[in-house]
């Protein structure tokens, strides 16, 4: 499949700002999807509200554009009503963690078979740069002009604790690893969660002396630490402070029973 058979060419160039990391994730997702040779007409793409949730509208397949934060709730319903469809959820950090935080935790707990790709750009980018739950400590945004005094959520660790089957975190600087991880997530049965720390030069970088997207990529490269290496180090605990360290890697890969098996969706059709 060519790139523009997978994506709608007539919609290009897309609306994302120059240097936005969402396009990188789109490339990696296309590559993973193409290498696995999955059928496009048997896959449903679901997005909530936000920049990253616009990705399903660019894919040449069925898309469900849902209310803010409820992408996982809609995907659960779709998956149970049409078990032959594969569901992929594209969502952002505000959509998934702040407004839909409870849906996210309960989606992991229920372990419905779906792939959730969260593009974490550390800010509410579409609405003008308000501080979100993942804005790092002491970083500036529109609503925190003296620096954000709160500590951010660690979405991947929450997914591990809530019981997802596959959890990984990468940044947009690690494109080959991200592609490999997306392939594993698409093949996984159960709730697969991939968090991608992405750059937002327009609203996050501009207020934090990183207006150039390449400066943000350099920040990712310098501050990211592989999880398998932190485990061996003295500090086993993952640092919540994104300003100091971004822990990347595969967090968990397990085979818990998924919700469809437990309630027997296949039997009832």
């Amino acid at each position: 499949m060519e790139l523009f058979e997978f994506y709608r060419k007539d919609r290009w160039p897309h609306v994302f700002c120059p240097g936005c990391g969402i396009g990188t994730v789109m490339n990696c997702f296309y590559r993973a999807f193409n290498e696995l040779e999955l059928p496009l007409d048997k896959t449903a793409f679901i997005g909530g509200i936000g920049c990253s949730s616009r990705i399903p509208l660019y894919i040449n397949s069925d898309a469900l554009h849902t209310t803010h934060g409820r992408a996982i709730a809609f995907a659960t319903g779709l998956r149970l009503a049409k078990p032959e469809l594969k569901t992929v959820v594209f969502t952002g950090d505000g959509d998934l963690g702040a407004i839909g935080g409870n849906h996210f935790i309960n989606g992991c707990r229920r372990n419905v078979d779906m792939t959730v790709i969260c593009i974490n750009n550390n800010i509410y980018g579409m609405t003008g740069g308000q501080a979100s739950i993942t804005t790092p400590h002491d970083y500036q945004s529109t609503t925190t002009p003296y620096g954000n005094k709160e500590y951010p959520f660690d979405l991947a660790e929450i997914a591990v604790a809530a019981g997802a089957n596959y959890v990984a975190r990468w940044t947009t600087r690690h494109v080959h690893e991200l592609t490999r991880s997306l392939k594993a997530a698409l093949q996984k049965k159960g709730f697969a969660f991939v968090e991608v720390v992405s750059q937002c030069p327009t609203n996050f970088g501009r207020r934090n002396k990183m207006a150039d997207p390449t400066q943000m990529l350099e920040w990712f490269r310098q501050s990211s630490v592989r999880r398998d290496k932190t485990k061996a180090a003295e500090v086993d605990h993952v640092d919540l402070n994104l300003a100091g360290q971004i822990t990347i890697g595969e967090f968990v890969d397990r085979n818990r029973e998924c919700y469809e098996e437990l309630i027997g969706v296949g039997k009832h059709g």
Partner: peptide, 14 residues
Amino acid sequence: CELCVLSCPDQAIS
């Protein structure tokens, strides 16, 4: 390598 093709946010490089 393919870093540029995968990283380009606007799908411009082929």
